[in-house]
Write a protein that binds this DNA or RNA. Structure first.
Ligand code: MN
Ligand code: MN
Ligand code: MN
Ligand code: MN
Lengths: 217, 217
DNA sequence: AGCTATTTTTAGATTTGTCTAAATATAATT
DNA sequence: AATTATATTTAGACAAATCTAAAAATAGCT
């Protein structure tokens, strides 16, 4: 499989094409910053190879084999991200770009050994689950901070937006995965929150709260 | 720079195009398992980019910038080989293929941090020197075993042929880099050697002896 | 020096992945 | 239901990297 094909499969997976859901040509094009006509070409090719379900004008979804391939790339991406943070001291906002390259390295032994070196991590630096070798997904039972009721408490376990600006903002405000958190008050006016985190008290805008995942206890 | 361009530069470096020596189109084609006409095309392109000296029918050599780029790729290749052996328990005959892919990953920070993780190694698993960040080469003072005089002694420090079959042969016969070695006898008939290595006595064919580097003490 | 063999380059074709512009199908709105 | 807007596909082109076959230049050999 070519690098481009792999990127299409991964994108389609992330857009939800693993559950039978049909993904629109335009959505893929936008996500990949390419043109719809290019997507059509690739859809035909990947369908031909048995990796996608595709009917003209009806969008695409992943076949079983396509799903396996996508999961394998996601597994590699996330394991490399863990490696970069744990072994090479990258910050969590620096790893994605490099992992986008590393995920295409072809060597089963490499990724198995890497998994072992990292002690078989279950989650990547952004809290996203790492598929097992045989494609099993262990999605965590988590909720957006913005959806937590008042006085509920939990632990930060992930981010929805994992763009560098958001991650840097969290760093600056000492909001890290693993931190305990409790909702103290919700402001009706702008839906901002007052929260307790690791002894401190913070005010959090709705935009932030709707991009932070919390595991309820 | 594209992956293909990088591979051309690296190959030309290895064929000796760093010293003003002019490298023939055919030699490059053979080494890269491609056709001479493809080499011509690429030569024109890389010359255009200022990475090669190229005059029609006169072969190519690396410019200063071309040499820098080549060294940077060789540095990455060898650092990744060390990583695979030291951190992921790859055998020294398994690393080359994977390093051929990893050498093209683009991230200065990645390679600097990797260098640090490995404790700034000077040589790769095959005894080849790892260029420093600024392209300095530390070639060791070594000799082929086949060229050592009788009763001379030294330490195995590298292989000339680093193909998997040769490396596996060395493993099977417990000949490893770092081993002390002494030439006991040279057979005139077939130029085979009797050597002492780590307590044992071995008979070594000329073909083997002419692919093993020894550092004389 | 002249002829032959080899090396190298050119010309034209192919594959992959992309693009633009135009045509067509589907969806939304009056 | 007809019209308009949007989404998708087709047709044709392009750049990168390669190939084959033919032409041209260089090297090697009487
Ligand atoms: Mn990522
Ligand atoms: Mn991630
Ligand atoms: Mn190698
Ligand atoms: Mn090596």
């Amino acid at each position: 499989m070519t690098r481009s094909e792999e990127n299409y499969l991964k994108t389609i997976f992330h857009l939800g094409g693993h559950k039978g859901t049909s993904i629109a040509t335009n959505a893929i094009a936008e996500q990949m910053e390419t043109k719809p006509s290019s997507v059509t070409d690739m859809a035909r090719k990947l369908a031909q190879k048995g990796l996608l379900h595709y009917k003209k004008y009806q969008g695409v979804s992943l076949t079983e084999i396509g799903k396996e391939k996508a999961l394998s790339i996601i597994r590699k991406h996330r394991l490399w991200e863990v490696f970069l943070v744990e072994k090479l001291d990258f910050a969590w906002d620096e790893v994605h770009e490099v992992a986008e390259q590393l995920e295409h390295i072809k060597s089963e032994k490499l990724i198995d050994k890497l998994d072992e070196l990292l002690d078989f991590p279950k989650y990547d630096p952004h809290g996203d689950p790492i598929p097992t070798k045989d494609g099993k997904f262990m999605e965590r039972d988590k909720k957006l901070l913005s959806e937590m009721p008042i006085s509920a408490s939990g632990v930060c376990v992930g981010v929805k937006d994992s763009s560098a600006p958001f991650l840097k903002f969290l760093d600056k405000n000492k909001i890290a995965l693993g931190n305990a958190i409790q909702v103290l008050e919700k402001e009706d006016f702008d839906q901002s929150l007052r929260i307790a985190m690791e002894g401190r008290e913070l005010r959090i805008s709705h935009q932030i709260a709707s991009n932070l995942y919390v595991k309820i206890e």
